[in-house]
């Protein structure tokens, strides 16, 4: 029964829309598909989308581990407020995040005022894309790792300390192998989130073709021409790439989880 419900929900919510997507794209035929989805500009856009997402998910995974550790282990005034703040990026319309970030990092913005003279362009740049993607994906990286850290057996850390391990040795040899599967899961979720993000990116990337144009912008361009099928080809390629990436990451996660047992 529960399996039937699961199957039904997954079909209605995920598989059906995906099938429509693939069917629409397939209506162009193989040659039309390649012509629409594999232009130099589209390839560059896939590169920007995937590259920035992987980079952002990596940053989120590392930062998420640090933040989750602090939230789970250190009791400080305002911890609960910080804990609640973690979820804000999930609730905030991402376009707002894009606008706020670009306003902060442009030359006359609060941060850009200091950073741009140093040659750091946080707005209308690749860096800007990575910044907002970290913003939207960080909650996933934190929330996946935090409960795992909270459930860690503190005894093993004490055992390591008594056996003469330094703090660093204790963390890298004893703690990290236990939470690495969760960190990788966090990375995968952050990656999935970053790959699909559009709203915030278009406001900060500058959308320069071949440089900072992400694949979803191309999709919207094609939709403006009412070229539905062509637009969906790009979506299908992006989806296939994302799926491949996620399958690889999941396989890695499972290997690590087995090893940690």
């Amino acid at each position: 029964m529960t399996f039937a419900i699961t199957a039904l929900v997954m079909t209605a919510l995920v598989l059906l829309p995906l099938a429509v997507l693939v069917l629409r794209a397939a209506s162009l035929g193989p040659q039309g598909f390649v012509a629409a989805a594999w232009t130099p500009r589209a390839r560059a856009a896939y590169g920007v989308s995937l590259g920035a997402a992987v980079l952002a998910a990596t940053v989120s995974a590392v930062l998420g581990l640090v933040v989750a550790w602090v939230l789970a282990r250190i009791d400080f005034p305002g911890r609960r407020v910080l804990d609640a703040l973690v979820d804000v990026p999930l609730a905030l319309p991402t376009a707002v995040a894009g606008l706020v970030y670009s306003a902060l990092y442009v030359e006359k913005g609060w941060l850009g005022h200091w950073l741009v003279p140093l040659g750091i362009q946080g707005a209308y740049s690749y860096l800007g894309i990575v910044l907002v993607l970290v913003f939207v994906s960080l909650p996933f990286a934190i929330r996946v790792v935090q409960p795992v850290i909270e459930s860690l057996d503190r005894d093993t850390e004490e055992a390591a300390r008594i056996l003469g391990a330094s703090r660093a040795q204790t963390f890298f040899r004893v703690v990290l192998p236990g939470i690495l599967p969760a960190v990788v899961t966090g990375f995968a979720l952050a990656l999935a989130r970053a790959l699909g993000e559009y709203g915030s990116v278009v406001f900060i990337s500058g959308n320069m073709p071949f440089k900072t144009e992400i694949a979803p912008v191309l999709i919207v361009s094609r939709l403006e021409e009412f070229a539905y099928a062509e637009a969906t080809t790009i979506a299908v390629v992006l989806l296939a790439m994302s799926l491949t990436l996620l399958i690889v990451v999941n396989a890695l996660q499972q290997r690590l989880a087995r090893n940690a047992q």
Partner: peptide, 15 residues
Amino acid sequence: REVGFVFQHYALFRH
């Protein structure tokens, strides 16, 4: 301190 310590729930390194 050079002490040996044995925990109730073993505290072995699982990995």
